[in-house]
Design a binder for these strands. Structure first.
Lengths: 212, 212
DNA sequence: TAGATTGTTAATCGATTAACAATC
DNA sequence: TAGATTGTTAATCGATTAACAATC
């Protein structure tokens, strides 16, 4: 696709939030909104909203504002949420299992097709209708089913080596929950690092500014 | 405290990542590093590292670089990681339970002292050595134990009302995993929203630029 | 002392906000 | 037509990078 290659990552990252708020408005039965009203709800400026949206096209109408349903739909298209990127999850421990069960992959452009783990006591159990497979099956599975994305819920030590292997096997996108920073080491591989502890430490700092 | 009130949030948010990389270097037995080397490892510029650190003080030495252990320690102090902010977690379902079990609260400036849930089948079970209490106990618990932070692992619909109540009860910081955006609606309350689905959708966009 | 590397100021770059003409 | 609100250009603001004098 690469249709909007020039749009900055700061803008992209705001898109899911717009999508979320527009979805909420739809639920409430709101069908029309101005950048001014939306800005108020989302705690942004109207200017920023109009700038952001106009990176992708003119979705509004002068004198009227934006159609909530249409805009929601457009942002979904921009993000590619109707894709079904074949996805595997590796590491079905505590966190991995929760992610597999709780995240609405299907509404976010992904389709979870395989779960893998190393531990014998986990292998064979069923998560979200998928039987957990041993890591030894990973390679043949990938050659057969050709997943394009991988969710990493594994310990830090294992992350880099596994990522290298997965890139070889054709994985083009990582959702990384391991404590390891998969920096941009591969060309043409998409990456989202989720560092929950970083977020908690940031909260600690903010809190320390308020308390005492 | 409010010692560094003028430092921008962009800088603050990079601090946990510095902390993490410095910790890794310590493990490897590296005791000295220049901004140039660190920049290389972290995929930043040396300038940015020096600028970031100098927001808080001159931790380096000309001609030498930075002492890894000392810098790690300093950043821990800046973030306030040796605090023990009394913290409660609300919503001990799948996600809440995992968070309670997996997150190293004690190394991030927090101390988990209570877990609450609404559901009868969850109440009474033990998570991380804490007995899950019914929501009805929340108020008296807060008055007695005076927690300052709350982790919210509850459904979107419940978030706003509960947050209001918790602010009344003296909570000064929220780590919010609910799908609801607790925007900055309270004065003097610290907030970190974690929106996993937003991250996944961003990955979807990035992936769509690469694949096809 | 010479070499290395910081701390810090200045220059550049990018992102946000303001303003307004276009237009529904 | 008059009022409202967008799309878009220009102005401002903040963050990142470059440069270099200070100094270990």
């Amino acid at each position: 696709m690469a249709r909007y290659g020039d749009v900055s990552i700061s803008v992209i990252k705001r898109m899911p939030r717009y999508y979320r708020f527009l979805g909420n408005l739809m639920e409430k039965g709101v069908h029309r909104i101005s950048s001014r009203e939306l800005a108020h709800i989302m705690n942004l400026t109207a200017s920023q909203i109009r700038q952001d949206l106009n990176c992708f096209g003119g979705f509004g109408q002068q004198g009227y504002g934006y159609n909530v349903d249409a805009l929601h739909h457009e942002i979904g298209k921009i993000l590619g949420l109707r894709s079904e990127y074949r996805t595997i999850l590796i590491g079905a421990g505590n966190l991995g299992k929760t992610i597999a069960q709780q995240i609405p992959f299907e509404h976010s452009g992904f389709s979870l097709i395989g779960v893998f783990d190393l531990k014998e006591d986990i292998v064979g159990s069923t998560i979200r209708g998928l039987e957990v497979q041993p890591i030894s099956e990973l390679e043949s599975f990938c050659r057969k089913k050709r997943p394009v994305a991988a969710v990493l819920c594994i310990p830090r030590e294992a992350a880099q080596e596994l990522a290298d292997k997965l890139v070889e096997l054709g994985i083009k996108g990582f959702w990384n929950f391991s404590h390891y920073d998969l920096s941009v080491e591969y060309a043409n591989v998409a990456l989202e690092n989720v560092h929950l502890v970083d977020s908690l430490m940031t909260l600690c700092y903010k809190l320390s500014e308020i308390v005492e």
